[in-house]
Simulated scan of single mutants.
Amino acid sequence: MRVVIALGGNAILQRGEPLECGVQRQNIRKAAESIAKIARDHQVILTHGNGPQVGLLALMNESYKEVTPYPLDALGAQTQGMIGFMFEQELRNQMPGRKVCTVSTQTLVDTSDAAFSDPDKFVGPVYSKEESEEMLKANPDWTIKADGEYFRRVVPSPQPQEILELPSLQHLISSGDITVICGGGGGVPVTRKEDGTLEGVEAVIDKDRASRVLAEGIEADAFIILSDVEAVATNFGQPDSKDIRCATPEAMDQFGFAAGSMGPKVEAATQFVRNGGKMAAIGSLEYAAEILTSDSGTVIRNDVADGVTYY
């Protein structure tokens, strides 16, 4: 089975953890253990988020005044290499002798996308209300929004239109025996100018939306989004909230999900199934193998008899 696994940036550097390389490496090692349980029996194409990492690089970027700050697209490319290197190494350690390859990718976006006037993609560390006010004073061009009980910087997250490396990825994946790491951070956002040349864009693409485009392009059998929650919850945080076990795309439409967090995950998963995918799922990294067998997480398929079931 060909499986696209999209791993959230917060699963690599969890909410509230120090943004240290050693912490990230430890979390990636644990993630690789879970992913290897699937990759030993199926072909895995792994994508990953980069919100905490690209935000950290932006902070480092701003602190060195001798050089003009690098744009977000360049920082996104840096995170692809850094996170990809760590995952490739840890997956090789988990699966000695197996082929693992990291590919840097670019994703085409439209600069007229509404996201550029209404940023909602969280990046970087979390702040208290007082800290966020201080960060805005120091960085007046930033936008900061509430993220649960904390506050974080938000940047534009335009819709992905095309993964430029898709033909190369199709060729690489056709061998059937290579675990591929690609699409990091949704890919480096680029636009094509009138003369056909490519140019980087200041944005961070949602990795779940880009992973859905990838999963469709390589005709994946399953598309799994892994995060730090065990299932998608209705009316999250409220007394009447329930964890969804299985649902059709149409059943998922009746629930409202937060635009900057669960919303894009549900959108990507349901769209994959609507466009012909056999199954998509959202769940915890810890239970990745169980999600693939529909024994954990929220599974989205077209053949759920009652439309939706709960745990």
Rank of each mutant, 00 (worst) to 15 (best):
G200V: 01
G187W: 00
I218V: 15
E199R: 12
A251W: 05
E216T: 14
Q238G: 13
E230G: 01
V201Y: 05
S261I: 09
S211M: 02
P239G: 10
A233N: 10
P189S: 00
E250I: 00
D208P: 07
E194H: 05
K265H: 14
G297Y: 05
V232Y: 04
A259G: 01
E199C: 11
I205S: 06
V229R: 10
E250H: 03
A203V: 08
S211L: 02
G276E: 08
D295C: 14
G200R: 03
E219R: 11
Q271Y: 15
A203T: 09
R301A: 15
T248P: 02
S296G: 10
D206Y: 03
V190A: 04
D208K: 04
Y287G: 00
Q271W: 12
I291F: 04
A289W: 05
Q254S: 12
A280W: 09
T234I: 06
A233C: 11
R212C: 14
A289P: 04
K193I: 00
A222F: 05
I218R: 06
D253Y: 00
E216D: 13
S211C: 06
N235D: 15
G283H: 02
F223V: 05
R212H: 12
T270K: 10
M252A: 07
M262Y: 06
V299R: 11
T298Q: 12
D228K: 08
E216L: 15
G185N: 01
K242C: 12
P189F: 00
Q271I: 07
F223D: 05
A269M: 10
R274I: 03
E250Q: 12
A231C: 08
K265N: 13
T298Y: 11
E202D: 15
G260I: 01
V266W: 09
G263E: 08
L198W: 12
R301D: 11
R212Q: 15
A269W: 04
A258P: 03
A288D: 06
D221C: 04
E219V: 03
A289R: 13
D295T: 09
G237E: 06
P264V: 04
C246W: 00
P249A: 07
G277H: 07
A210Q: 02
G263S: 09
V201M: 06
N275Y: 09
L226R: 06
A269V: 15
E199V: 05
A258Y: 07
N275K: 15
I224W: 05
T270N: 08
T197S: 15
Q238F: 14
A215Q: 09
A280R: 08
F257Y: 13
T248L: 02
P189D: 01
T293L: 09
K278M: 13
N302K: 15
R274A: 02
F272T: 04
G263T: 05
V213A: 04
D295R: 15
S294D: 15
E216R: 15
G217M: 06
S227Q: 07
S284C: 14
F257N: 07
G297N: 08
T298D: 11
G256Q: 07
D240S: 10
